[in-house]
């Protein structure tokens, strides 16, 4: 059994928070560049150019790409042969968030009592932590700062099984259409299909972590991803909703077996500031 100090997890989370908020993943930046070539709207191209320049400034100055540095979502895949010592694992993650957001000049956006006093916790904790146990003796940590604007336009539907594939397509496109400019397009769309009320939104959230341009290895899902991407871009919403061909950068679909009575669909919307960073300890 391998031992891993809780302090090492705190250090890693702190660093991931800063790096995720300053440096946009390469697959997303490359997509900005290719969209600049294909976008037909002049205003759309102008916006994409400014987004590209924003990436360069944030990178050079090590400042947040977007002032909304999000809820801090942390996925941990914990090897079953790892023993975390020297502290509480979840506290170690939250300590890392607190330190990273303070040291990195990141905005603290978490408030208590959502329909009441809404008092800022002051350090962006608590993080939204998803842990899973996997084989092996390593810990993989993925940190996803998730902005409020795009999260607010995400949606869940418990469809009837008879609505089938068409029902899924309609719900995803309607969700993107309703989001329009609010969610900061061009978007990345994570779609979960199946499982339960909770599982389906988890699948959707995990899906937005995939690389732009990747396809689900299951042919029927890859085909759905292609169709959704094409039809979402036919909506005409365009960069920041001002009209154009680039409404989504990509659509990713993940599925899970479900109940005989159920067809849950979750759509998690990610803005163009599609930040995430991972490390394996």
């Amino acid at each position: 059994m391998r031992e891993l100090q809780a302090a090492a997890i705190t250090d890693a989370v702190s660093r991931l928070a800063k790096e995720a908020c300053y440096f946009l993943p390469k697959d997303v930046v490359d997509k900005f560049d290719s969209a600049l070539e294909s976008e037909e709207s002049e205003t759309g191209r102008d916006i994409l150019r400014q987004l590209r320049e924003n990436v360069s400034i944030a990178d050079a100055e090590e400042v947040p790409l977007c002032q909304d540095t999000g809820f801090t979502v942390v996925f941990m895949e914990i090897g079953q042969d790892v023993h975390v010592t020297g502290g509480d694992l979840n506290e170690a993650v939250n300590e890392g968030v607190k330190r990273g957001y303070e040291e990195g000049y990141l905005r603290k956006s978490m408030v208590t009592q959502p329909f009441g006093e809404r008092k800022n916790t002051g350090d962006n904790t608590p993080a939204i932590i998803h842990s899973s146990i996997v084989p092996g003796e390593q810990v993989k940590i993925t940190l996803l700062p998730k902005g409020g604007g795009a999260e607010n336009m995400s949606a869940l539907a418990m469809l009837k099984p008879s609505q089938g594939r068409q029902g899924v397509v309609d719900f995803v496109l309607n969700t993107i259409s309703n989001a329009g400019p609010n969610a900061c397009p061009p978007l990345i769309i994570g779609v979960g299909v199946g499982g339960s009320f909770d599982k389906v939104t988890y699948l959707a959230k995990k899906a937005i972590l995939r690389d732009v341009g990747s396809r689900n290895p299951e042919p029927h899902l890859a085909e759905l991803e292609d169709e959704l991407e094409r039809r979402a871009n036919d909506l005409g919403i365009g960069p920041m909703g001002m009209g154009g061909r680039t409404t989504v950068m990509d659509v990713f679909v993940e599925e899970y077996p479900t109940h005989i009575a159920a067809l849950p669909v979750g759509v998690n919307i990610q803005c163009h500031s599609a930040r995430h960073k991972e490390v394996v300890l």
């Binding site: 037909e40 709207s41 205003t43 397509v169 309609d170 496109l173 309607n174 259409s177 329009g180 400019p181 039809r231 979402a232 036919d234 909506l235 005409g236 919403i237 365009g238 909703g241 001002m242 009209g243 154009g244 061909r245």
Partner: peptide, 15 residues
């Protein structure tokens, strides 16, 4: 938003 979208929308999108 309405005018920009109308200019670039391809109607078969929502189907």
């Amino acid at each position: 938003y309405q005018e920009g979208r109308a200019k670039f929308e391809r109607k078969e999108a929502t189907g």
